[in-house]
């Protein structure tokens, strides 16, 4: 240690201790890793490592329990809000959150998601929207943009054949049970800070019993999109943000 700057007392940023040392299985540059990291940071800041129960989805984030060192339940595909409902009702003083991708939340789990939000279950839902089915090889998802290529719409999504992309977060904002619905991203330092504040607020709402909080994170799937991580971030800014504009949809 010859460098005088690199001393323990000068440390200003390090990954949270709640995040395990396991190397994540995600592709290089995957937004999942960034969101895992900030979820762990928020749990550490709140001092709730022993009081948090997460519900893992099916999708790339199925192994989230290997990376965030809190209690986890693994749900059947799309059923995370239903499992979280039971966990929160039986443990009302615990922080309960689900972590779901767009295939899990917006496709197979649409019913569970909408009804959990409409019932106003006191859970936080973290929704990773990358517009594609990442784990299974980049197939078209309900959230795939018009004209966007995927392995099952190789010439781009066409509305007369494939229907229209689904803004499920906007739908969830209409339900009476949600108290906080927001759409964020994690591609720049400032957006990471905003998403972290949003997740903190969602977790606080869960503990205060204010209703369901939904934090959508517009994300990249650079492998599925066939781009480099940096190109994918740029593509997301140019194409995803006009259709999925960032900001709070509901806050009460």
């Amino acid at each position: 240690m010859s460098n005088p700057i690199i001393q323990p007392e000068n440390l200003v940023y390090d990954k949270s201790a709640v995040l395990t040392d396991n190397v994540m299985h995600y592709c290089p540059g995957c937004s999942h890793g960034t969101v895992h990291r900030i979820v762990a940071e928020v749990i550490e800041e709140m001092g709730l490592q022993d009081q948090t129960i997460g519900v893992a989805p099916v999708g790339c984030a199925v192994f989230i329990y290997n990376y965030i060192n809190v209690d986890f339940a693994e749900s059947a595909h799309g059923r995370a809000p239903a499992i979280a409902t039971a966990i929160k009702r039986l443990n009302p003083d615990k922080l309960v959150f689900t972590y779901q991708g767009d295939g899990d939340l917006a496709a197979i789990g649409t019913a569970e998601t909408i009804h959990a939000c409409n019932r106003g279950e006191n859970i936080a839902i973290i929704f990773i929207n990358n517009g594609i089915y990442g784990m299974t090889g980049g197939q078209m998802a309900p959230t795939t943009l018009l004209g966007m290529k995927s392995s099952t719409c190789p010439t781009g999504r066409e509305p007369h054949l494939n229907g229209y992309p689904l803004k499920i977060t906007d739908m969830l904002a209409l339900t009476e049970g949600t108290c906080y619905v927001t759409r964020q991203s994690v591609h720049t330092p400032s957006s990471v800070k905003k998403t972290k504040r949003a997740i903190r607020k969602a977790f606080d709402n869960s503990l205060q019993g204010k209703g369901t909080s939904v934090v959508e994170v517009v994300s990249t799937c650079n492998s599925g999109w066939k781009m480099t991580p940096v190109e994918a971030n740029r593509w997301m800014e140019e194409n995803m943000f006009p259709f999925y504009p960032l900001g709070d949809l509901k806050d009460r």
Binding site: V12, Y13, D14, S16, C30, P189
Partner: peptide, 20 residues
């Protein structure tokens, strides 16, 4: 400058930032 921008965006949490 130790602004930690790199650490904030790192998907794998592999950057430690020091500032003096």
């Amino acid at each position: 400058t130790g602004c930690a921008s790199c650490g904030l965006v790192c998907p794998d949490g592999c950057i430690k930032v020091y500032k003096l």
